[in-house]
Every structure is written in structure tokens, then in C-alpha cells.
């Protein structure tokens, strides 16, 4: 690309940036988006409106997004070279080694808790899954020394878990289809929504939270481990 065309492009981008920013700031909005927040408690029994939207109103989107993560994990695992790498020849200090061992259970428990409380407090499956993935990655990084790799979960098992979680997600959807005639239906199925704010409430939302948490955790684990081993 020549300099002139680059200059034209950049100035064009700036001009449109300014126009759009101005328009967004000034232009009146004729219609505001629907406010989900007041409805969620009645419809889904979930205190966390975000979770309600993610796992109930727009659960189909979430199924799609979870699929994207699964797919990315599969692709990364497939495409990265299989050669074993021994990148960590350095010995880590004992503080790190023991510190990780001490921290790991807490991190994992935190992750699971965030997943499980997705419908009553901030967080949810995606956040919790990332935290769990962090713990597995930590472990693998610290204990893969001298060419020997350590996993919390073996790669083959990872795949099994991923696919099981996917089946479970679809299974929950089919449950809704069977009971209420609508895929991924929640309250309509007759599942008790429970008392809002309690752990066992909001119908299928906690299940989907857990499932997607597992998927995200394992998926991210696969991705990071694949790239890390490269």
C-alpha cells in the first residue's frame, strides 16, 4: 500500500470516528432497549440479571458461544505441533512450588463457587470456568519440569469432559423441549424456581452455569496448554 492511500484511509477512519462519536453523543435515542432487569426475577427466579439473560432468555446464544470455545480448543489442539517441548529447564524456587500447592485448592474452590452462585451473585459459568482453568494451567506450568509433563487432567480426558458437557447442555435443552415443548425452556417446564437468592433456585440456570463453566474451564485449559507446550 502506498503512503498516499494509507494517508487517505487513516484520515477517512478519523473522520468517520469523529462523526460516529459525535452522533452517538448528540443524537437522541427514539427507542431504548428493553430493560430485562425487572423481569428476570419473575421469569427465571435468578437474582443475577446477566445470568438470567445468558442462560435463559438467550440460552441459544450461550450454547453457540460455548460451542465456539469448544471448537477453538479442538482446533488449537489439532493444529499445534505434537512434538514434546521441554521449555522449562529452569528450576523454580521452592516458594513457588509450595505456594502453588497451597493456593491451588482455594483457587479451584473459588472457581466452582463462582459457577455455582452464578444466578444469585455476580459471576457465572464463564467467569468460574476461567478461574478453574487458571488453576489447572498453574499446576501444569509449575510441575512440567525437565521434559516431563504433568496434567491435572489428561488430554484425552479433557476431550471426554468437553463432549460430555456439550451433551449435557443439549440434554438440558431437550428436557425443556420434552416438558414444555420448547428447547432450553426453563420455568415453563414446571421445574420449581425456588426462593430467589438461594443456591438451589432459578430452575435450569445453575445447571447450565455449571455445564458451561466446565466447558470453558476445560476448553481454556486445552487452549493454553496447547500453546504453552509449543
Amino acid at each position: 500500500m502506498s503512503r498516499i492511500s494509507a494517508a487517505v484511509l487513516v484520515s477517512g477512519i478519523i473522520v468517520f470516528g469523529v462523526i460516529i462519536a459525535f452522533e452517538l453523543a448528540v443524537a437522541p435515542r427514539t427507542a431504548d432497549p428493553l430493560n430485562h432487569a425487572p423481569l428476570t426475577l419473575r421469569d427465571t427466579g435468578a437474582v443475577n440479571a446477566v445470568s438470567a439473560i445468558l442462560f435463559d432468555y438467550r440460552a441459544l446464544d450461550t450454547l453457540g458461544e460455548a460451542t465456539v470455545i469448544l471448537m477453538t480448543a479442538t482446533v488449537v489442539a489439532f493444529l499445534t505441533p505434537r512434538a514434546k517441548a521441554s521449555m522449562l529447564a529452569v528450576r523454580l524456587s521452592s516458594i513457588v512450588l509450595y505456594g502453588v500447592v497451597l493456593l491451588l485448592p482455594f483457587i479451584t474452590i473459588l472457581g466452582i463457587a463462582v459457577m455455582a452462585h452464578g444466578h444469585v451473585s455476580p459471576g457465572g459459568g464463564f467467569t468460574g470456568g476461567v478461574i478453574v482453568a487458571t488453576s489447572t494451567v498453574f499446576y501444569a506450568v509449575v510441575y512440567s519440569v525437565g521434559g516431563q509433563q504433568s496434567y491435572v487432567i489428561a488430554p484425552a480426558a479433557n476431550k471426554l469432559i468437553e463432549n460430555t458437557a456439550m451433551t449435557a447442555f443439549i440434554g438440558v435443552g431437550l428436557l425443556g423441549l420434552g416438558l414444555a415443548g420448547s428447547f432450553l425452556a426453563n420455568a415453563q417446564t414446571g421445574i420449581p424456581l425456588g426462593t430467589p437468592g438461594e443456591l438451589l433456585s432459578a430452575g435450569t440456570i445453575p445447571m447450565l452455569n455449571l455445564i458451561s463453566g466446565v466447558k470453558v474451564g476445560v476448553g481454556l485449559g486445552i487452549i493454553v496448554m496447547s500453546l504453552f507446550l509449543e
Binding site: 500500500m1 494509507a6 484511509l9
Partner: peptide, 22 residues
């Protein structure tokens, strides 16, 4: 075959579309 050039075309095309809309 230069991807920067192709991206430039795409950006330019989008901006032409925007100019027309405006």
C-alpha cells in the same frame, strides 16, 4: 496477495458505503 492492501480495500469500501449512506 498482500493482506494489508486487501484490508485497505475493505476499509475503503466500507467508508465509501458509509459516505453514500450519510
Amino acid at each position: 496477495g498482500d493482506i494489508r492492501r486487501y484490508l485497505g480495500w475493505a476499509v475503503g469500501g466500507t467508508m465509501l458505503l458509509w459516505t453514500w449512506v450519510l
